[in-house]
């Protein structure tokens, strides 16, 4: 597997304007290795972010001084957007409407600028003023610790599970690895692979580029990329016969209805939601109702306390019994 430094140089830099490319390419490997985001803002310094920190980037590399930082120009942004869109803004209209573009490797580029509205809905984003390169990282094995708690050995099925964490807490990384493990089969659980369907509304789980997953989500996995969750779940149920459906960030009424259908036809559901505690989730109208009705048999809590993806707790859904706690360990 390529190191993150090489991934950035080979997959990210090729989509940047030459001046930015020359700055990023010569950054030290240790800095690139921990990079999570590269931010380009019009007439503002070029900034690189990692978990818990940031650094200005100057022509000679990282610098603590704002004065020495390279100021991103309109031309840099224009040129970079042109390269990301493969010189074809017309072909990226749909993605731009969603506020992001995906590039090979599954990396996502967030876009901000002037939003053009037509007939009450977003038509496109013009005059782009910010681009945010989010480096897609696959942490193989991120789900190994969690999966034994999600597997019903007697029935040979996966429990309906909700993964809960604050933003950037590692939800998507965990979902991706769970998809890979369940799909490929887990030897230690004596479990063969199951058919997994991912409804990837924001192209984050599988990091699809032109519909093809760029990250390893397993050999028995089908991905509906950029598909609204509710419609996607129904499409999956109708034609792809998944045993497990995985989807990100549920919360709307229609998501719940589609999940209900999946649960009733015996398909296991693994979903995620933003939140930092059970109380917070319970206060949200739709999710609260789902928890009240005991849709989820397992609740997995993640946090940033020891870096993204820190496993805090796994709770049995119906009775609220803790199965694992970071302080106390597992069952």
């Amino acid at each position: 597997m390529q190191s993150i430094g090489n991934v950035i140089k080979k997959q990210i830099c090729t989509f940047m304007a030459p001046r930015l490319r020359s700055i990023i390419e010569f950054l030290p490997q240790d800095l690139l290795a921990k990079t999570e985001e590269i931010r380009l803002r019009h007439s503002r310094p070029l900034i690189l972010y990692w978990a818990g920190g940031e650094s200005y980037l100057g022509k000679r590399g990282p610098t603590p001084s704002l004065r020495e930082a390279y100021t991103v120009t309109g031309e840099d942004l224009e040129r970079t957007l042109e390269l990301i869109c493969s010189y074809s803004l017309y072909a990226c209209e749909e993605e731009l409407r969603g506020g992001y573009l995906t590039i090979p490797g599954g990396h996502r580029v967030g876009v901000a600028g002037r939003v053009v509205i037509e007939s009450g809905s977003i038509k496109t984003i013009s005059n782009v003023s910010s681009l945010n390169f989010r480096i897609a990282r696959q942490i193989l094995g991120a789900g190994e610790k969690v999966l034994p708690f999600l597997f019903d050995r007697h029935a040979g099925r996966i429990y309906h599970t909700l993964v809960i964490s604050p933003p950037q807490g590692g939800k998507t990384t965990l979902l991706r690895d769970l998809a890979r493990l369940i799909s490929n089969g887990v030897g230690i659980l004596g479990q063969g692979g199951q058919k997994v369907g991912i409804v990837d509304e924001r192209s984050e789980i599988a990091g699809c580029f032109q519909g093809v997953p760029q990250l390893d989500v397993g050999i028995r996995t089908d991905v509906l990329d950029a598909c609204p969750k509710a419609e996607g779940i129904m499409m999956m149920l109708r034609s792809l016969s998944p045993q497990v459906i995985i989807t990100d960030e549920i919360g709307r009424d229609e998501d719940v209805r589609a999940l209900e259908d999946a649960v009733h036809v015996g398909v296991s559901v693994i979903a995620s939601a933003h939140g930092s505690s059970l109380d917070e989730i319970c206060r949200r109208p739709v999710l609260g109702l789902m928890l009240e009705n005991n849709y989820f048999e397992r609740l997995v809590f993640l946090s940033n306390s020891k870096g993204p993806g820190t496993l805090e707790m796994i709770v049995e859904g119906e009775r609220g019994l803790p199965l694992y706690s970071a302080r106390g360990g597992g069952e």
Partner: peptide
Amino acid sequence: IWGRSDKNGQ
């Protein structure tokens, strides 16, 4: 002109 606008603009 090439590729610099949406479908209608193009």
